[in-house]
Amino acid sequence: MSGTFYGLGVGPGDPELITLKAWRIISHAPVIAYPAANGNESLARKIAAPFIPEDVTELAIPVPMRREREPAQEAYDEAAKLIARHLDDGKDVAFLCEGDPLFYGSFAYLLDRLAGKHPTVIVPGITSITACAAQIGRPLAARNDILKVLPGTLDAERLKQEITGADAVAIMKVGQHFEKIRGVLTELGLAERATIIEKATREDERITRLADVPAGERPYFSTILIYQGSEAW
């Protein structure tokens, strides 16, 4: 009998934001897997660390963060085979995901490869954009506002088009695209209305108005929130 494949959202960074259901599964699963981008320490594992038993089998899944799709697809193929071996042995496998498993998460690629062959349970988690809104104490949107979630990887012209047509915007995957994004927001006259939240809910969290970020600085692990609707905030 196959083990169950769990996709667990562990939230944006604060371990206390893990749901009770995810905590219960982490505490009892014999195998814990998590992504390790480019061989670096896994943030998902770091978030869940207080709840991982000492006697579990851990699978660090190497995920190459590159623009080309092929290396990542090959990594997911190998990861799915590795996880499947444990599932075929009747062991449950819990895959830890930053934020929510199905919101810009690598779990989706494993889901596609494993769900049809093994029982699968997905536990949602707190997303980075909702955590960021909570940290700055400002609603994402209200009433008839249109909220758009945009990846910072879009080209400048597409970003302009999407931002112009929305009351509220959350820009993710900022990283190396920060200067491009700042240029677009400055051109649209929104730099003063944009807030950048780095490492939301973590001990080293930083919240800054976009206009106040020093030239040449590139805030990683960050989300930008912009509101240009009609509500008072």
Score class of each variant (00 low, 15 high):
Ala156Pro: 02
Lys81Ala: 15
Leu102Arg: 05
Arg206Phe: 05
Thr186Tyr: 00
Ala84Lys: 09
Gly39Phe: 02
Ala72Ile: 01
Ala131Glu: 04
Leu110His: 02
Leu43Arg: 01
Gly99Tyr: 01
Asp77Gly: 11
Thr127Glu: 02
Val184Gln: 11
Val56Asn: 07
Thr127Arg: 04
Ala142Cys: 11
Tyr34Leu: 08
His86Asn: 13
Val123Ile: 15
Gly105Ile: 03
Ala156Cys: 07
Ala170Phe: 05
Asp167Leu: 01
Gly9Glu: 03
Gln228Trp: 09
Val10Pro: 05
Gly165Gln: 07
Met1Glu: 14
Glu231Met: 09
Leu87Glu: 06
Ala194Cys: 11
Asp145Asn: 02
Ile52Gly: 07
Asp100Leu: 12
Leu154His: 06
Gly137Thr: 14
Lys21Ile: 07
Thr208Glu: 12
Gly90Phe: 05
Ile52His: 07
Pro119Asn: 05
Leu185Lys: 07
His177Ser: 13
Ile181Cys: 06
Ala79Pro: 00
Val213Cys: 07
His177Arg: 15
Gly9Ile: 04
Pro50Cys: 12
Ala49Thr: 08
Leu185Arg: 05
Ser106Trp: 00
Ala133Glu: 07
Ala194Asp: 03
Phe5Cys: 06
Phe51Pro: 07
Val121Ser: 08
Ala60Ser: 14
Ile52Asn: 06
Ala194Phe: 10
Leu185Glu: 07
Ile197Gly: 01
Gly11Ala: 06
Gly9Lys: 04
Glu179Val: 11
Tyr104Phe: 14
Leu20Ser: 08
His118Met: 06
Gly39Thr: 05
Glu205Ile: 00
Arg143Phe: 10
Ile25Tyr: 00
Phe95Glu: 01
Ile126Pro: 00
His177Phe: 13
Ser222Arg: 00
Glu231Arg: 14
Pro62Ala: 13
Pro53Phe: 11
Gly229Leu: 05
Lys46Val: 09
Ile226Leu: 15
Asn144Pro: 00
Tyr34His: 13
Tyr104Ile: 04
Pro119Thr: 02
Ile129Glu: 02
Asp77Glu: 15
Pro71Glu: 02
Pro119Ile: 03
Ala22Gln: 13
Arg66Leu: 13
Tyr104Thr: 03
Val213Ala: 06
Ile18Gly: 04
Met65Tyr: 13
Glu179Asp: 14
Ile163Cys: 07
Glu58Phe: 02
Ala84Arg: 10
Asp112Tyr: 11
Val123Leu: 08
Phe51Gly: 09
Val93Lys: 10
Gly175Tyr: 13
His118Asp: 08
Val31Cys: 06
Ala142Gln: 14
Leu188Met: 15
Ala134Tyr: 02
Leu140Val: 08
Asp88Glu: 15
Tyr227Val: 03
Gly11Thr: 01
Val149Ile: 15
Arg143Glu: 09
Val169Gln: 05
Leu190Glu: 05
Arg182Ser: 12
Ile196Gln: 01
His28Ile: 12
Phe51Asn: 09
Phe51His: 14
Leu114Phe: 13
Ile47Glu: 03
Ala133Gly: 15
Thr223Pro: 01
Tyr34Cys: 04
Gly99Arg: 03
Pro15Gly: 09
Phe178Cys: 09
Pro50Lys: 09
Leu20Ile: 12
Gly39Asp: 09
Arg69Asn: 11
